[in-house]
């Protein structure tokens, strides 16, 4: 029985792997069938979205270097002005009504490649008013991943901002910070800048994952 002066909280439900058939629930067309009228996708931009068009693409590889071909990645980001489309963001910056800032991508079952079509986010105010360098948040689930992995991708053409970023600077090993930098390719593709971001689940070049 509950008594006074006893801190009682519910416990977060335990995570379980998304399993090999995660696509049925989260991306049924990838599983091989049509069921919903509207589907979530890896395209975050509409015709009127403000900002520099970019594509983020890469592979997730396992500890043997093999591509994880059944991975699902979600992306969350601020708009071009550096504001999240969410009521808890009280920064004095404009919202872009055409941009939610969220997408979901599945890797190709043969190549393991996934991609997002989006815009480059602006800088967001971090804790204590310190600016965070432009970044996107990523969440990775798959068969064999027992609890979703959180990471961030920063941009290779933001060297100064990255050097001052409070989150990158929390990572003691400078060499590991490099695992969070998406590399901008020199040529545009279909009018969009391409950032390559490979995620390594395990091994010497293991990507930095966060406990957020």
């Amino acid at each position: 029985m509950r008594t006074v002066n006893e801190a009682i909280y519910l416990k977060e439900s335990a995570s379980q792997t998304a399993g090999p058939y995660v696509h049925i629930g989260l991306a049924p067309q990838q599983a091989g069938f049509d069921i919903f009228e509207k589907n979530f996708s890896n395209v975050l931009v509409g015709p009127g979205t403000q900002g520099e068009r970019i594509r983020i693409e890469g592979r997730v590889t396992d500890g043997s270097g093999t591509p994880v071909r059944d991975v699902l990645v979600e992306l969350w980001q601020a708009n071009a002005a550096g504001k999240y489309n969410h009521p808890a963001d009280a920064q004095d910056k404009p919202l872009d009504p055409t941009f939610r800032g969220w997408g979901r991508a599945c890797s190709d079952f043969k190549t393991g490649m996934w991609s997002f079509d989006t815009i480059k986010p602006g800088s967001v105010e971090g804790r204590g008013g310190r600016a965070m360098a432009p970044h996107v948040s990523l969440w990775i689930v798959a068969r064999g991943i027992n609890i979703g992995l959180n990471t961030r991708m920063y941009f290779s053409d933001e060297k100064d901002a990255n050097a001052a970023d409070p989150v990158l600077n929390l990572i003691e090993w400078e060499v590991r910070r490099q695992t969070l930098i998406g590399q901008r390719e020199s040529a545009l593709r279909d009018g969009a800048a391409v950032y390559r971001f490979d995620i390594q689940l395990q091994g010497p070049q293991e990507t930095v994952f966060f406990d957020i």
């Binding site: 043997s64 798959a142 064999g144 395990q202 994952f209 957020i212």
Partner: peptide, 11 residues
């Protein structure tokens, strides 16, 4: 083979 071996960085 799908599990990170480094400690997660707490944010």
């Amino acid at each position: 083979l799908r599990s990170p071996r480094n400690a997660l960085i707490s944010l």
